[in-house]
Design a protein around this nucleic acid. Sequence first.
DNA 1: GTTGGTGCAAAGCGTTTGCATCTGC
DNA 2: GCAGATGCAAACGCTTTGCACCAAC
Lengths: 161, 161
Amino acid sequence: MKNRLDSIKKQLHAQSYKLTPQREATVLVLLEHESAHLSAEDVYLLVKEKAPEIGLATVYRTLELLTELEVVDKINFGDGVSRFDLRKEGASHSHHHLVCIECGAVDEIQEDLLGDVEAVIENKYRFSVKDHRLTFHGICHRHSEKEGATEQNEENEQMQV
Amino acid sequence: MKNRLDSIKKQLHAQSYKLTPQREATVLVLLEHESAHLSAEDVYLLVKEKAPEIGLATVYRTLELLTELEVVDKINFGDGVSRFDLRKEGASHSHHHLVCIECGAVDEIQEDLLGDVEAVIENKYRFSVKDHRLTFHGICHRHSEKEGATEQNEENEQMQV
DNA sequence: GTTGGTGCAAAGCGTTTGCATCTGC
DNA sequence: GCAGATGCAAACGCTTTGCACCAAC
């Protein structure tokens, strides 16, 4: 965790940005809530616990900055808010998501399943892929198998495989 | 084209919705601009040419209705507006998109490249896939190969393979 | 006449921006 | 003191909603 923060600090400095207390608090919130797919508002409320004086605009500006630096991915599940996902250290691509239409849970898939597909895109369609967004909508394992599974609204889990 | 309209009319009637003149004009605009990834505002301006009295709210309501009926897919490329894509007749999944970060062009991929990936999602992650969204961001063939390719902003092409 | 659909304007809501203030070299 | 960063409030832009009116059976 400390390493991630240091590494992000270096990335900021490399582009002559500072790691201000507000930015640090924001990054810490993101680190502490990996895979939570927080919205800007979510981040704001959590950061306020650490640094109550922070303004929403600063959070937006920080998240924008981190997106530019490719520290986070700005993703969108079609519900009208942008969500921010920390990239795995060194990952060059956004990971995939499973959105359950029953309970709203969002699971992550860290393994890259698009290698073959990207090869087709590159060769057949002559398109040089820089990033991708892949989201599946459907019914998660908690709801497809057993009826009466524990309700899980607004809750997020990470599936590491 | 006529067939598509009739088919959509049937789908509406099946759920006891009417194909009002405003709805018909909206559907026609979508049919005439397939693969154009029109925003609601775009659709509104085009529909106004056919039916000048139409209101923006009606267009929004119609697009929402068509999305529910799975006649169109509501997609989002992260630029803050929803875009509406007519589904191919009988297609059960949204098709894929290639967004060029140089010129903003959006190409479509009609072939389904996710068969193997969905099998993994279903089996390994026990997730029952109902729909997907796959977008690649990168550099399109017009800009990756030859410098000085024709500028193509806000323009869209369909790649049928 | 009842029901669903429409048009308009106002409201809603996430996000961005202008600007005065602050902070650190 | 200068440049970058911040906080606040206002502005913005897309989308939704309330409501009176309309159209079709």
